[in-house]
Write a protein that binds this DNA or RNA. Structure first.
Length: 653
RNA sequence: GCUAAUGUAGCUCAGUGGUAGAGCGCAUCCUUGGUAAGGAUGAGGUCGCGGGUUCAACUCCCGCCAUCAGCUCCA
């Protein structure tokens, strides 16, 4: 008999050799049907190890039974799905060779090399899905077999699986296993589902080329992506989510709402802000400027280029010189300049411009600084990956003992912003030094330890959930990055706060201390939005273009019912604008229903319907975007309503 | 950068080796309307750019440019 401990710490006894599936059956049939994989921890194990449901248990252990909701179950489910897809591909494309086929964050893929003359295209996906479902219906069991290296090489060599042989060659004899279901055998470590039967819904999503083992000198494989679920309804839900994400694509909405554009003529990766997008961005900038003013920042403006020597001093030339836009030179004197890839060197120059006393610190200078970075053409993507963008940058020069307080103050700013923009869900990542290799960092152990401690304590004090990542710090200092979850649950990295010991050293920055001696200030880089481009992109996808009232380019549109009311409509606009409400008039020669529809699609928050009745009494019929009628108001009531709502939305500040 | 796909009217897209089409938008006119598409007429295109094949190229071939996806998740 062996003792098995459950997650609730209860212990039960079982015959030695019992399988996790039997353990589940002993609890309930329902559980046995739902679990996909288990993990166990024996006395000798440091942590839980995922195991298959048919793996006999022969010693005392703790067990966890994983249903679909657990990441472990999804991983095994998708891994087995990739085998099922491979089995289907083997039938449909005789002679196909297989590379690797792992589970990924959302689904799975398999890298394959079709036989001479065969190509797998999008149009083949339904056939692959159908074949997978056919094979699944056979309820094939996955059989794990340990095999010697020599046998494995022979077995896969005989089948012409050259890529598999290459993988086997890299493995240590005695650790090699295969999984077989039906006529398909794959080199694999597992773990897997015990059967392909639970894979009830599958969708092949895309195929694209991928280098064998990520190496561009090696052959190009066809990578086929898919996703699968235990229930059809889950697949439908997932596909709906994908569609919703597509609808929210900021590139599409940005075009529809005329927020920004790109032009081949201007150059790729160079976003151009159109009037409506600019209005929105300026409102964001003004909002942040106002907060920053309260938090003791001073706004500065610096040129878009800087002398090459500036970047030699900062170290950026050494680090990024080759991967930047190349230097600009003057025609006569041969002076050399670089487009600025960062604002910090300019800000260091500002700091150096005047002597500083310890009493003056922190010195905080902020700039919406546009920077230019060379990105490989294949990396460019909408507003999220561009070659010119504006950082809501600021640099705080402070004493070491002020670091924690400054972090807390920056975190407050970030919180205000996230709240004002309805990012309810956010978390932080603390990036610290690699504990095993401290040589790659600049600055003394002492200051690093202080700074790392300051960041951790700042998070604790603010009650901010933070994940600590070792080895993720920049070479010049530890950092704190902010991740938000958008309305579809997608995670985006936005703001960042970074401590820097490097630049103060390189620029020989100093302040005079209480002791009348010179000291080195600490520098903190921070950008709550990150970049205006990226932030607006995320905001568009988060809100689907329905921006909060305070931010939206146009807050209301007046819809005259007929030409007879046009004059009143324009008067309404004028009166509302006098009270800072942003209003359009739709006086096209169209029926009301049409105007409502068109303006709904423009995502304007309020429609003000005015006809003869309203004109007589100085009223508006207010309709909220999303079909909600709010009844009639006077012009003044509506202006107050908008201004109160905006004030409320901004009340975080 | 690499690999594949795509590039036709302002937008979304159809189409053919014999010099182009739809819907929406736009303009004009009719209609003067009450909460998600009223009607008619019309304008609008060097079919991404440059070469080549051909009697003839938007179509086929080559090169370039741009867009999009993947190239990061490791049997």
């Amino acid at each position: 008999m062996i003792k098995i401990t459950f997650p609730d710490n209860s212990v039960r006894e079982y015959e030695s050799g019992v399988t996790p599936l039997q353990v589940a059956e002993s609890i309930s049939n329902r559980l046995a049907q739902e679990i996909l994989v288990a993990s166990i921890k024996r006395a000798a194990d440091e942590d839980f190890v995922i195991t298959e449901l048919n793996q006999p248990l022969t010693e005392d252990c703790a067990i966890r039974l994983h249903k679909w909701d657990d990441a472990e179950a999804k991983h095994a489910f998708w891994h087995t799905s990739s085998h099922l897809m491979a089995e289907a591909l083997q039938e449909l494309y005789p002679g196909i060779q297989f590379g690797i086929g792992p589970a990924i964050e959302n689904g799975f893929y398999y890298d394959v090399y079709p036989a001479e003359g065969q190509v797998i295209k999008d149009s083949d996906f339904p056939a692959i899905e159908q074949k997978m479902m056919e094979l699944r219906a056979k309820k094939e069991q996955l059989q794990k077999t340990y095999i010697t290296k020599a046998d494995a090489l022979k077995q896969f060599g005989d089948k012409g699986q050259h890529y598999k042989c290459e993988l086997i060659n890299d493995l240590e004899d005695g650790t090699i296993s295969t999984y077989t279901q039906g006529a398909f055998t794959d080199l694999c470590r597992g773990p897997h589902l015990v059967s392909t039967e639970p894979i009830k819904a599958v969708k092949i999503l895309s195929c694209a080329a991928a280098y064998w083992r990520g190496d561009e000198t090696r052959p190009m494989m066809t990578r086929i992506y898919g996703i699968s679920f235990p229930k059809k309804s889950q697949l439908d839900e997932y596909l709906t989510l994908l569609e919703e994400a597509k609808k929210r694509d900021h590139r599409k909405i940005g075009k529809e709402l005329e927020l920004f554009m790109f032009s081949e003529m201007v150059g790729k990766g160079l976003p151009i802000w159109l009037p409506k997008g600019t209005a929105l961005r300026l409102r964001l900038e003004d909002f942040l400027k106002k907060i920053q003013k309260r938090y003791g920042y001073q706004q500065v403006i610096t040129p878009h280029i800087g002398s090459k020597n500036l970047y030699i001093t900062s170290g950026h030339w050494d680090h990024y010189g080759k991967d930047s836009f190349q230097p600009i030179t003057t025609p006569e004197e041969g002076e050399v300049y670089l487009l600025k890839p960062m604002n910090c060197p300019h800000h260091c120059a500002i700091y150096k411009n005047t002597p500083h006393s310890y009493k003056d610190l922190p010195f905080r200078c902020a700039e919406f600084g546009t920077v230019y970075r060379y990105e490989q053409s294949g990396e460019l993507h909408g507003l999220t990956r561009v070659r010119s963008f504006t950082q809501d940058d600021a640099h705080i020069f402070c004493r070491q003992d002020q670091v924690k307080q400054e972090f807390i103050r920056v975190m407050e700013i970030i919180e205000i912003i996230f709240r004002a923009l309805n990012f309810e869900n956010f978390e932080a990542q603390i990036s610290l030094r690699d504990p095993n290799n401290r040589t790659k960092y600049v600055g003394s152990d002492e200051v690093w330890e202080k700074a790392e401690k300051a960041i951790i304590e700042a998070c604790e004090e603010k009650g901010l959930p933070a994940r600590v990542e070792y080895g993720e710090a920049a070479f010049y200092g530890p950092k704190l990055d902010f991740m938000v979850k958008d309305a579809l649950g997608r995670r985006w990295q936005l703001g960042t706060i970074q401590v820097d010991y490097n630049l103060p050293e390189r620029f020989d920055l100093e302040y005079v201390g209480e002791d009348n001696q010179k000291h080195r200030p600490v520098m903190i880089h921070r950008a709550p939005f990150g970049s205006m481009e990226r932030f607006v992109a995320v905001l568009i996808e988060h809100t689907a273009g329905k921006f909060p009232l305070w931010l939206t380019p146009d807050q209301a549109v007046v819809l005259p019912i007929s030409e007879k009311s046009n004059e009143y409509a324009w008067k309404v606009k004028e009166m509302l604008e006098a009270q800072d409400v942003r209003v359009l008039v739709d006086d096209r020669n169209e029926k009301l229903g049409r105007k409502i529809r068109d303006n709904e699609l423009k995502r304007i928050p309020y429609m003000l319907i005015v006809g003869e009745k309203e004109a007589e009494q100085g009223l508006l019929s207010v309709r909220q975007q999303g079909a909600e009628e709010k009844g009639q108001m006077t012009i003044q009531q509506f202006a107050d309503f908008v201004n109160d709502t905006v004030k409320k939305q901004m009340s975080a500040y």
